[in-house]
Amino acid sequence: MYVCSCFGVTEEQVRAHAAAGACTPRQIAATSGAGTDCGSCVRRIQGLLGRPCPRRTPQATPASSAPAAPTPDPRPAPLTATR
């Protein structure tokens, strides 16, 4: 079935681009042109992708047991009047 009538892009083609690493409608558009003319297919493309990109999932940061040292204030100390 066609997803993008403007460029004749099918669901199968979108799935093939996704399998090759395209994770967003913008990446699908870069490879196939789908979504770059009238834009009515962008939501359908997003629905076909329907998953987070494996390369863009947030990495877990290791928790350290020691608290972080406070960051020194880079501003100069205020001037005080002396007599």
Rank of each mutant, 00 (worst) to 15 (best):
M1T: 11
Y2Q: 14
V3L: 12
C4K: 06
C4D: 14
S5A: 12
C6V: 09
V9Y: 07
V9Q: 03
T10I: 10
T10V: 11
E11K: 14
E11Y: 01
Q13H: 02
V14S: 02
V14P: 00
R15K: 13
R15Q: 14
H17N: 00
H17F: 11
A18E: 01
A19Y: 00
A20E: 15
A20Y: 04
A22G: 03
A22L: 08
A22H: 04
A22Q: 07
C23F: 01
C23P: 00
T24I: 00
T24A: 09
T24S: 15
R26E: 15
R26L: 10
A29R: 11
A30C: 03
T31V: 11
T31Y: 01
S32A: 12
S32P: 11
G33S: 05
A34V: 12
A34Y: 11
A34D: 11
G35T: 08
T36A: 13
T36G: 05
T36K: 08
D37G: 00
D37Y: 12
D37F: 11
D37E: 13
C38G: 10
C38E: 07
G39P: 02
G39K: 00
S40E: 14
S40R: 07
S40F: 12
S40A: 14
C41M: 06
R43E: 15
I45A: 04
G47N: 09
L48R: 05
L48S: 09
L48Q: 06
L49Y: 07
L49E: 07
G50K: 06
G50Y: 05
C53L: 01
P54T: 08
R56I: 00
T57D: 07
P58M: 10
P58V: 12
Q59G: 06
T61G: 03
T61P: 02
T61A: 14
P62N: 01
P62G: 08
S64Y: 05
S64C: 07
S65P: 03
A66M: 10
P67M: 01
A68Q: 10
A68I: 07
A69W: 04
A69F: 07
P70C: 04
P70I: 07
T71K: 04
T71D: 02
T71H: 02
P72E: 06
P72D: 07
P72T: 04
P72A: 05
D73W: 01
D73Y: 02
D73M: 05
P74S: 13
R75M: 09
R75C: 09
P76D: 00
P76K: 00
L79G: 10
T80Q: 10
T80P: 01
T80D: 05
T80Y: 08
A81C: 03
A81V: 12
